[in-house]
Structure formats: structure tokens, C-alpha cells
Amino acid sequence: MSSLLEVENLNVHIKTQLGIVKAVRGVSFSLQKGETLAIVGESGSGKSITVKGIMGLLPNNGKIAEGTVFMEGKELSKLPEREMQKIRGEDISMIFQDPMTSLNPTMTVGKQIMEVLHEHHPEFSKETLKEKAIEQIRLVGLSNPETRFGQYPHQLSGGMRQRVIIAIALACNPKILIADEPTTALDVTIQAQILDLMKELQGKIDTSIILITHNLGVVANIADRVAVMYGGKLVETGNLRDVFYQTAHPYTKGLLASIPKLHEHNQQLFSIPGTPPDLMDPPKGCPFAARCPHTMKVCEAYMPEYTCLSETHKAACWLLDERAKEQGKDGADNA
């Protein structure tokens, strides 16, 4: 395969005082050059931990228990820390959720951009670094780049800071940009601006994006492909159209149904009943079984395999299984 990034059966365990949390359980996906993959799921579904595992930025108590991450033939999960440092910021960059806390408060904006450039291009002179940093500030659409260069984060608004963070992330023209809920902490008008900026810059520097979000509106706006995570597992992946219009997994259906609709008045908002599974002691079967309106006995006992619905679209649900279709008829009759 000529994928840029290939994640295979990734398992991440996090050690806590109460026990080991199996935060990511056998996640596999690939990322093609220039595409935008959205990883969707609610809090605690393992989205952030998945990408932190890819970046090698897991917290001290977390580790990749199993699985591989390949980027252009290099196995990232086996690289020594020193090699990984060369990749971070240069080949894979990351944007974080909260622009208010993601910048160093005691360092000027310019210095923070120059730092990543200097790290990966020690050959650049001070003047070149400054020039490039200012260029980068201009690129992300901030006015008065020269003034911004010397300002501290607290002198900028949230949206401006997120632009600075994007400037840092894209300074070395990375092949992959991982955006971990980049718009969650921003207000709605700014959200749209930041998404537009990301799309625009993706075109300019030809980078692939992994976007983590729980906001399906954002997904529809920017993603080419969607991966839905639940309980540390990928439950459905497919092209944007597949997932939005040929929705296969009951969890994805639930997520889509939960989006407030503007034209329907006086409607109570739909929510999926129940709570996500405890990943300290994950269920044997499908993680969604406890909340699924279509639960069958088999769901609780065995984890369903992926069913390929088309070349690009697959989902892990017993309802889609060949055998379930016949059984399902009986089940429906019995019910």
C-alpha cells in the first residue's frame, strides 16, 4: 500500500492507580497523501490517545501495548526517542484543543515559531528564521505580522492564538497534521474561520490531516474520510458520504441523530441513553451493546468483525453480519 500512515491493531494501555485502562483497543486505519481523516467519538472514546500514541507523546503512565504505526515504511512505534524527535514538528505536527493554554506564556509568538524552525533547520541564520517566522504569521492570516512577532500570547485573542499554533505546526511543512479538537475551545464564528484556514493551508502545502473531533458539523465541513470511535475501538470507517448517508453502525446513527436541527422547533434533543463503557474492564463483546437499541445476545458475548459494505466503507456490528440478517428476521418476529 502506498499510504502515508498505516496504523495496525494499535492498543494503548494507561496505568492508573485503580488499574490499567485499555484506552485504545485494536485500532487500524490508514491515511493517504493529501486527505483529511476525521476521527469522531465522544469524550473518553480514545481518539486523543490514539493520535498521541502515533506521535509518541503518550503520558508517562501510558504505553503502546500492541500494534504498529508505519509512516512511509518507517515503524514509528519502534523508533528510539531521538529519531522520533526529528519526526515531530518536521514530518508530523500537532494542533491542540485549547489555544489559551497551548502556547508558552513567557515566550514571544515569534520565538515560539522560530524555535520549531531552528530545531529542524539548524542551518538557518537568525535573520532567515525571523523572516520565515513572520512569513508564517502572515500565512495564517494575522494582521501586522511584524508586531505579532514580538507579542506574547496573552496579548492575542483565542482565535489569534489558534492561528499562531497552526503557524507553529505548519512551519516545517509537515506531511501529516494532527489536529486534536482544534475548534472546540473557540466560539462558533472563529471555529469556521479556523477550519477554512486549515483547508486553505492544506491545499497550499499539501499535507494530510487527521482531525479529531466530536463535532459532526466540523466533520462534514472538512473531512474526506471519517472514522468513528467508541469504547477504544473503531466502529465504522468510510468516506464522508458513506458514513453520513449510508450510516451502518447504530452508534453512528445515534451520533447523527443527536445533532440539533434548526428547522425543527420545540423538539427535545435526542441523546443516546446510557454511558460509555468502563475501559478499565472493557466489555467482552461490542462496547456499544449496553446502549444499543438493537442489542442481541451475541453482541454482549462477542466483538463483531468488520463487515465491508463497500470498498471504502466498513463497520463492526453484528446487525451487518451475513448470519445476523437471517437470525434478525426471527429475532424481530420474537420481539
Binding site: M55, L57, R82, Q85, K86, I87, R88, G89, E90, S93, M94, F96, Q97, D98, T101, S102, L103, N104, P105, E115, V116, E119, H120, I165, I168, A169
Partner: peptide, 17 residues
């Protein structure tokens, strides 16, 4: 524990820096 430390790591800086 702060976010900007993760940002710094994500830039590819080594621990000392």
C-alpha cells in the same frame, strides 16, 4: 502538566530543551 509543554514536545524538542 501544562499544554504548552506538550506543544514543546510536539515541536520535536528534546527533554532538556
Amino acid at each position: 502538566e501544562q499544554d504548552y509543554i506538550v506543544t514543546a514536545k510536539a515541536k520535536g524538542l528534546n527533554q532538556f530543551k
